[in-house]
Nucleic acid binder design. Structure first.
Lengths: 339, 339
DNA sequence: CTGAAAGCGCTTACAG
DNA sequence: CTGAAAGCGCTTACAG
């Protein structure tokens, strides 16, 4: 066993009782090898979980299997979250002599297995994770493996790895504060179904905000993350008596669905119902009236993730850190004073 | 000279009259080396344009300087162009055992030099280019270098490289057809300043469409790619007498600016003025009324780019191909019949 | 069909 | 401070 516990072609050759050249041939040019030795090699490969090391293969073959793409410059204006995230990640990484390689599980390949394969191939020094959730199997795997990574999202209070997260609860709670300060009392929440860490946090922030304002959190709708679900949420909310005068949502999609359906029903956004989104997507600044929304500080997220990673790579025994960043509520015209 | 004409540490050592180990030390642990030999080495490095080979360095150091990021799954719905482009690029590439590495010029680094450095380091087998323009210096450089790449954008009629492009002219010309078929005659165009290949093509498509419909292309506004410029365009257009009854734009930003300003001036979009965007951004489906827009077929673009690349990598002497794809006009409610 | 050996381009103890 | 040598983990002629 050698490279950080990853098997090499030598281990495979020993186990299969053949030379390393033959292992290589069995894998790359099977026509040159007898059926019987080929199967013995494959067996050994399977048992050991062997994957050829990328650097060694690249060096010998003069082929990297990597394609370069220069990420276009980031222009201020309405951008998607992924655009922003990648941009700050890549530029910060470049400053530390690190590059980002994008991957995706192959068709039918298990999620965790895709990470495992990257490790076995020695393809990367570390990972950046995003869209994590409670008990994320990728995190469990990487922690167990002792492989460096930094996660955008906490997944759970955990000292076993480094993470950066945006305090979603602070975002929705800010939204409630703002609304309460403007006289609203019946403030609804449109949240995702329970079970996602970010969704639950955003919902919790709403509860906190309501509590602090001495308000009763009586209007709750659970909805999946689509415009149509947002529209449905508005209808259900508007049917209540009394209906809410404001609604905080966990996502712009939902908020925009609410606004669209309000408009369709002749209900004036801001005047009759205030609405707040989350994520400040490109759509927020363009819909009429422009949507107030909670924006995540992707620049600092990207920087922090890379910093944590660089720390780990320089000192593998460094203790893990967690960085919680506050989002900012960007106020536009979808919120008004209590009618 | 060795790796595809890229200098190796051996060449440097010969030129500097020292051993390869000393070159390595001069570069990586200069404290171990005398000032005079260090400067001789650096000189040789500079003259040769030497960059350490990534694979060799990775193999020796057991460090790749690569960070893996699993690109999140693509969810249908409003997505940015970059999201879509990257998604299809990465998934298609994965099917060919290729991965995408993202890079960006370092602070102050020249654009072409960033590509050059990647090549000298043996960091990639090929590049994907996007946002190309006439006489793109990157293209000139890569063609001269004989380094494999595929370009999203033609830049110019050219047999020296492989490209995929979307027929922007076909897109705007479709838009004009649609409008003309609905009785519009005074159809305006809001275009970028001349000088960008994609912008010029979109403008040309407008001219073609107008010509075919027997219409006079009399309303042209040049504008930079922002909402505000779109607003300005509307004002200027609406001041003319007679004003146009429809406007085709080269970008959603512009189209949305037009719509916003129309609304601000009490002019009903679709009823009084029809508008068509380009790119079908996330904003298009969300603004009211939803914006008709020309959508680029990113899935096929990504697939075609990777296919062209794989072809070149398998057979370096393969002749280059160009693939022109048609965009599709997605009709929503921002376009109506002539009032 | 198989193994021994050279080589890919670096880095890193180790002598001197 | 410098050079010779071994090693990183593969691939690929080349003998046999």
């Amino acid at each position: 066993v050698s490279v950080r516990g990853r098997p090499t072609i030598k281990e495979v050759s020993k186990r299969a009782g053949v030379s390393v050249g033959t292992v290589s041939n069995a894998l790359n040019t099977p026509q040159l090898v007898s059926e019987s030795t080929r199967s013995r090699v494959l067996e050994a490969v399977g048992e050991l979980g062997y994957e050829p090391n990328r650097a060694a293969r690249s060096l010998a073959r003069r082929r990297t299997h990597l394609v370069g793409y220069r990420l276009p410059d980031y222009v201020e204006g309405p951008n998607s979250s992924l655009d922003a995230f990648l941009h700050y990640l890549v530029t910060t990484a470049a400053g530390h002599d690190l590059e980002l390689v994008l991957f995706t599980p192959r068709k039918g390949q298990d999620e965790v297995d895709a990470y495992h394969e990257m490790i076995k191939r020695g393809a990367v020094d570390a990972f950046i994770l995003s869209d994590t959730n409670y008990y994320d199997p990728r995190i469990e795997f990487l922690v167990a493996e002792g492989f460096p990574f930094a996660s955008f999202g906490r997944a759970a209070a955990d000292e076993r790895f480094s993470w950066v997260d945006v305090n979603g609860a602070a975002g929705t709670s800010q939204a409630v504060n703002h609304l309460a300060a403007n006289g609203h009392q019946r403030i609804a929440m449109v949240a995702w179904p329970t079970g996602s860490e970010s969704g639950d946090a955003r919902y919790q922030g709403y509860l906190n905000g309501m509590g602090r304002a001495g308000l009763e959190p009586s209007h709750l709708i659970r909805a999946h993350n689509t415009l149509d679900e947002g529209r449905r949420a508005f209808r259900e909310l508007w049917d209540r008596s009394p209906p809410p005068s404001a609604v905080v949502t966990v996502a712009d999609n939902l908020a925009i669905g609410v606004m669209l359906e309000a408009a369709a029903n002749g209900v004036a956004v801001a005047k009759e119902i205030s609405v707040v989104g989350f994520d400040d997507t490109p759509m927020a600044s363009v819909i009429q009236p422009p949507l107030s929304s909670v924006r995540q500080p992707f620049e600092r997220v990207g920087e922090a993730l890379i910093d944590l990673l660089v720390g780990q790579l320089e000192d593998p025994n460094m203790e893990h850190g967690g960085i919680l960043l506050d989002p900012v509520l960007v106020l536009r015209n979808s919120t008004g004073t209590y009618p």
